[in-house]
Design a protein around this nucleic acid. Structure first.
Lengths: 118, 118
DNA sequence: CGGCATCCTTTTGGATACTG
DNA sequence: CAGTATCCAAAAGGATGCCG
């Protein structure tokens, strides 16, 4: 079933989802766990600049939205693994394209910024 | 020239650009002015929920990044028109794809959310 | 009409300490 | 190791008033 949704309506539920998937850290987290599931502190080390608090929040939201699954491994001490889901993988396409855009157009944007200051 | 940029490095300039183009209002503003240039208050009315302050900030940033051009029409009282640039148009592809994703996967996400609460 | 400036409230973010 | 809880600083957001 397709949800009825006006792109510009404040009530449109896809607006909120859009905000969540374009979150500052979500894209990077999804990327680092794409190849294989990773543990909390491994992700933390790879995503430079993320705090423990922010990473926890990001992972919870990703999990809640079905983009990531959390698995507790019964070792001692416990290990926790985060894996990307099929839904998460399907998001990577659009997200990657957007990131590609930022890379390829960084120069044009920088130039525009210099022009703007003048 | 392609910028050297490590996706996960905190110093990577594309990170900041990514944050800016995935801004809450940017996508909607770019969409509404896509067909033809619009004036400030017209945009404001179409993008439901945006405040005057937020719209001003969004437009300034879009302009600064070269995605939008601001034109002052010498009428009385003055009219100000915002038009999308070629760079802005090139961003619409990836941005639109991402928005498409949110629409088509809203159901799956909602289902995941229900599952998560349980 | 299209803003900018100010004020104030609310949200977010970082740092630190503590726990199973 | 993988968090939660707390506290404080910083940033964002809304409301209002004013101006060219």
């Amino acid at each position: 079933m397709m949800v009825e949704c006006d792109y510009f309506s404040a009530a449109c539920p896809s607006r909120q989802l859009f905000d969540q998937v374009t979150d500052k850290w979500s894209m990077m987290v999804l990327s680092v766990i794409r190849a294989k599931p990773l543990r909390f502190n491994t992700i933390r080390r790879q995503v430079e600049g993320v705090t423990q608090k922010a990473l926890t929040q990001t992972l919870r939201r990703l999990e809640r939205n079905g983009l990531v699954v959390r698995r507790v491994l019964p070792t001692s001490p416990v290990a926790v693994e985060y894996a990307i889901t099929d839904l998460g993988l399907s998001l990577q396409g659009p997200l990657g394209a957007l990131h590609e855009w930022t890379i390829t157009n960084l120069d044009k944007v920088s130039e525009a910024q210099r022009a703007y200051e003048a």
